[in-house]
Simulated scan of single mutants.
Amino acid sequence: MAYELQFTFDELQIPSFGIGMLLYGTAYLQSTGDGEFFVQSIQLDGGAWLTPTREGSTLEAKLYREIAAVLYDETTPYGGKAAEDWAIEMADLRGPDPDRAYEEHRDSFLHAAE
């Protein structure tokens, strides 16, 4: 099952661009199928969409690669937060369904009364 998480970032810095560039936007993290995530796309505040491309010479391609690298690096504040948010979401998905537990309890009670 493919799962997607929207991860918002404010004032994200890209090391190769220096400290003067602060980026704001949302990264769309998608499941790789083995519990990890990859950055499917990034929308910068103001509308620009960044996606992975094979041609790497455009500014958009470089921005995508650099932002994704920060998010994959758990030693950065945003990388650590992305990993933490992803782990929490995955744990919630694997957790017990309270509605199912209620329905099973209700059904067992109803069948016992018959």
Rank of each mutant, 00 (worst) to 15 (best):
Q13M: 09
Q13G: 02
Q13F: 00
P15W: 01
P15C: 09
P15G: 09
S16F: 01
F17H: 06
G18W: 07
I19E: 11
G20M: 04
L22F: 01
L22I: 06
L22H: 05
L23Q: 04
Y24S: 08
Y24E: 07
T26C: 11
T26Q: 04
A27S: 14
A27Q: 06
A27T: 09
A27N: 07
Y28Q: 05
Y28I: 10
S31K: 01
T32F: 02
T32L: 10
D34H: 12
D34Q: 15
G35P: 02
G35Q: 12
G35K: 09
F37G: 02
F37C: 05
F38K: 12
V39L: 02
Q40K: 12
I42K: 03
I42W: 00
I42F: 03
Q43R: 13
L44T: 08
D45W: 02
D45S: 13
G46V: 10
G46W: 00
G47E: 11
G47P: 04
A48D: 12
L50K: 02
L50C: 10
T51E: 15
T51A: 15
T51R: 15
T51K: 15
T53G: 10
G56W: 01
T58D: 11
T58Y: 03
T58I: 11
L59T: 09
L59E: 06
L59V: 09
E60L: 10
E60W: 03
